[in-house]
Design a protein around this nucleic acid. Structure first.
Lengths: 223, 223
DNA sequence: CACATAAGTGAACACTTGTACACATCAGGT
DNA sequence: ACCTGATGTGTACAAGTGTTCACTTATGTG
């Protein structure tokens, strides 16, 4: 979904295809167009309605059929972002088997997803300091959810059992932040520069290891 | 500097003041105007030349006398940002006396500076995922410098001496990232909500403590 | 089938935008 | 004293912007 298809039908002024336009298709095209523009290096905050509709191969008026403003579109993108994150978590839970490689493999899965949905994560990184308060809060909320799920998983795996609930939350929050920041590193190197991507992955892994070492020895200094 | 002064002279079409306009005054007004707009909630990437010059109380054409484009202005703002960061470091070095309160006091100084130069740090947070590659790289570079200075300070204070140079750099990088991310928390709460600001400060402090606990026990697992 | 509704279209509006040009003013060096 | 450059100003224009309006078309439910 959200692939960049080059306006399959020309500038046909009339819809003559026998194939019906499935409902919500334009809505998706608009969201995907915004993401594509972000993926091309534009900042979401600088996108205009006309620009988005042009990229989507749709007349400007159509935009209002689905969104009230660009910020509104952003909000709906945040919702979709939630789905992407959930998919990523599911895959991580399924694939991370050996506890000793937990960090490494989780980071690998994260990097893979970030690469596969580059525009999406780019949008997320931008939105964190974006100009729409609502989008900002939405992304922050997704991150909180992610952190709380991570805490649950750690509890379920009987890891970090010496930590109080609030300290575990603290740890997971720090983990999520660290990963989120790595996003900006990852997205600033070209997607197919395997060496650089590998460097980011290694570095992120070490960051997380350091955080978990800190968490493992946390109680001793809580006095 | 860069205070928001409300266009002291009116819409005078001619410059009749006996007081000479000191050189570079308009340049500063333009930079300050851009920062003001960012401080008002706009995103830097969405600012236009006319908007900036309007806010600065200057005719659009003047912009080109000092900058080639908005991105160019952004680059020069990054340079100024460097100065702000250096001032902050100097103050931190001067005021942090007792090693046991090192983290707490450093965070307090950071928060104070971030509050005092809100727009500047807002600009920095935005620029990290901004649309100008050059600005992005500039901010990243400032952060690297900051991290390396922090590493030097730790060495000078004979702290974390068990860490190799690369591991110390890793630690400092993680510290700087963590603080930078806290920026987005800090800047998303209203500036005069002392309670919330205090919460962010406490949370950031605990993050850093956890990182340093991790660093303190790092060697044991480097095998 | 008829009909309400959702989705798409093109033309038009009043603004705003970036940029170019020609001109005015002043500072400083020779 | 005079020129040169840096700086600031007003005007102008073509292109792009958000938004509204009236119109068509297809869908699904009674």
């Amino acid at each position: 979904m959200y692939t960049c298809e080059p306006d399959k039908r020309g500038t046909g002024k009339q819809m003559t295809d026998k194939q019906r336009r499935r409902p919500g298709e334009t809505r998706e095209k608009l969201m995907s167009a915004a993401l594509d523009l972000v993926g091309k290096g534009r900042h979401f905050a600088s996108l205009g309605i006309r620009e988005i509709t042009r990229q989507a191969g749709v007349v400007p008026t159509s935009f209002y059929r689905h969104f009230r403003s660009v910020d509104d579109l952003g909000l709906q993108l945040v919702d979709e972002l939630g789905l992407v994150l959930r998919r990523m978590m599911r895959e991580a839970r399924a694939n991370v088997l050996q506890a000793d490689k937990l960090i490494e493999e989780s980071v690998a899965i994260f990097v893979a997803h970030a690469q596969a949905n580059r525009s999406f994560f780019l949008f997320m990184a931008q939105g964190l300091a974006g100009e729409s308060r609502a989008v900002q809060e939405g992304i922050r909320s997704e991150m909180r959810f992610f952190a709380s799920e991570l805490a649950n998983d750690l509890r379920r795996l009987r890891l970090m059992e010496h930590l109080s609930d609030t300290d575990l939350d603290l740890t997971c929050d720090l983990v999520v932040r660290t990963v989120a920041f790595s996003l900006t590193d990852l997205l600033s190197v070209s997607a197919d520069d395997d060496y650089q991507v590998g460097q980011v992955r290694k570095r992120t892994t070490r960051f997380l290891q350091m955080v978990f070492v800190g968490a493992a020895h946390w109680n001793s200094r809580s006095a």
